[in-house]
Design a protein around this nucleic acid. Structure first.
Lengths: 153, 153
DNA sequence: TGGGATTATATGGGCGTCAATGGGTATGTT
DNA sequence: AACATACCCATTGACGCCCATATAATCCCA
């Protein structure tokens, strides 16, 4: 599987280390399996992360915005200048930068949520609430969620 | 046959393992025959499952949404983080995650129901009742059932 | 075509490996 | 020296792999 899926709850130890879930590590390209990039989510108080390869994809998305719009500047500033690369140690753990922990309100535990081509890291309770809220929004449009899940090839 | 059909009743052993019915295993693509994805059914207290290929389809569809829209996040949260991948061992068994067992009320036995491109896993009694209910609903609309059964491809 | 032999499936259990976690120590930067 | 970070080693529990058995299905040949 080459997608970030499922959710995991991991502890942050005294040294600030936390394990990147094993299944997430396997999604990272073998070449750069000891490095991930992290940045503040634009829309939620959470941290987003992915392998270094994904950066290009993000760049492309931003490039598709209207170059002269305010959004363009806002997104490119918010994302590119805020990106942090982090190393993963031999045991599969990494350090969450202090600034990002503050932004997400993370203290002793980190909840990892697969999002396909990237993942999110939440303070556990906030993460749970976000899942519920987002599901509630979608169920208002039952049809579209069902379509997404059951549509035939 | 490349569809999930028929129904089966299998036991869950002490370790929590349960056999995926042989005919279901044969539906999985040879490439990823040792992995399935599971998620909570939207409409019923049951678990739905399928091969990973289907997930990639869904990923593609979500990826085509507007990257910066709220829908994009809602879909990817509700789908990717709720999906659980499970490995199938050499004997064709897999583990049903605790959270999903709770959701479906499954304890010692699991009833598998083929649904074409995917399958459902039910607590046996609930599954039986669901079958009866849905048949009853169909018969109420005989006309549509007849159409369904007689219509040629 | 009957009946034994072979194969497949569902199920049980032992055991090694890996993932998550904790802690000591070396190395390095300021 | 003081702090941060990476490497090494240890522990625990979960999971995957291997082997084994019973029942069911299939095959094969006289």
């Amino acid at each position: 599987m080459d997608l970030f899926v499922s959710k995991y709850l991991n502890k942050i130890d005294k040294k600030g280390r936390v394990s990147l879930p094993s299944s997430f590590r396997n999604v990272l390209p073998k070449a750069n399996r000891n490095e991930i990039i992290l940045y503040k989510s634009i829309k939620t108080p959470s941290i987003e992360g992915c392998g270094v390869g994904r950066l290009k994809e993000i760049a492309k998305r931003i490039n598709n915005l209207d170059f002269f719009s305010e959004d363009y500047d806002d997104f490119s500033t918010s994302i590119f200048s805020e990106i942090i690369t982090t190393n993963i140690d031999k045991e599969g753990r990494f350090l969450i930068p202090e600034e990002l922990k503050l932004y997400a309100g993370i203290k002793t535990e980190a909840a990892f949520f697969g999002q396909g081509h990237y993942f999110q890291i939440w303070e556990p309770k906030k993460g749970l609430k976000n899942t519920e809220d987002s599901r509630r929004r979608l169920l208002k449009e039952k049809k579209s969620l069902r379509m997404m899940l059951t549509q035939q090839k």
